[in-house]
Amino acid sequence: MNPISAVGAWVLGAVEEFGQYTVFTARALWGIVRPPYRLRNLFRQMEFVGNQSLSIVLITGAFTGMVFAVQTDFAFGRFGARGLIGSTVVLALTRELGPVLTSLMVNGRVGSAMAAEIGTMRVTEQIDALESMAVDPVQYLASPRIGASILMLPILCAAFDLVGALGVSYVATQVLGVNPGPYYARMEWFVDPDDIWGGMLKSSVFGFIIASVGCYRGFTASGGAEGVGRATTRAVVASGVAVLVVDYFITVILAPMSVNRA
C-alpha cells in the first residue's frame, strides 16, 4: 500500500470508529433517562467510582497542593510576592489541576476497570446472555457507569480542591513562613466560587469521557484475555489524551465568561 492510501485508510478507520463510539454513547445516554431505571446498579457504580477512588484522590490532592506551594514560592519569592502563593495555587487547583489530575487518577482506576470488566463479559458471551434475556446490555452496563461517573467526578474534584488548598496553606504558612493574615485575605479576594464550579463542571465532562470510552472499549473487545487487555490499554490511553485535549477547548470556551466578571 502506498503511504497516501495508508493514511487515507487510517483516517477512514478513525472516522468510522468515532462514529460507532458516538452511536454507542448516544444509546447509553438515552438509556440513563428512559425506563427501566436500575437505581441499584447506579448506586453500586457511584460507590465504585466515588468511594473507592476517594483515598487516591485525597493523597494526590494534598501532595499536589503542597508541591505547588513550594514551587510557586521559588518563583514568587524572587519578586516579593509570596503573599500571593495561596491564591495562585488555589486558582490553579480549582480551575485546572483538580479536574485534570482527578480525572487522570480515576481514569487509571475506573476507566480501566470498566473496559476490563465489560470486555470480559463480552468475550465470555455474558453480554450475549443479557441480550438473550431481552435486556439491553448497553443500558444495563454502560448507562449506570457513565451516569455514576458524571455525578461522582465533580465530587471527587471538589475533595481534591479542598485537600489541595489545605496542603498549600499548610506548607505556605507553617513551612515557608508566609504571614497567614494577608495569605487568607488574598485568597478570598482572588478565588471566586465560579472557579470552583467551572472546575467541577469540567471534571463532570471528563468523567463522561472516561466512562464512555471505557465502556465502549469493553463492548468492542474481542479475542479472549489478550483482547480484553488490549481494550483496557486502549481505553486508558484514549481517555487520558481526550481529557487533556477536551480540557483545552472547554477552558478556552469558559475563559471569556470568567474574564467578564473581573
Binding site: T120, T124, E125, D128, A129, S132
Partner: peptide, 13 residues
C-alpha cells in the same frame, strides 16, 4: 419469548 442455554454457560460471574 426465548430462553437460551449458551454452550459455555455465559453465567454472570
Amino acid at each position: 419469548r426465548f430462553g437460551m442455554v449458551f454452550q459455555h454457560s455465559a453465567l454472570f460471574d
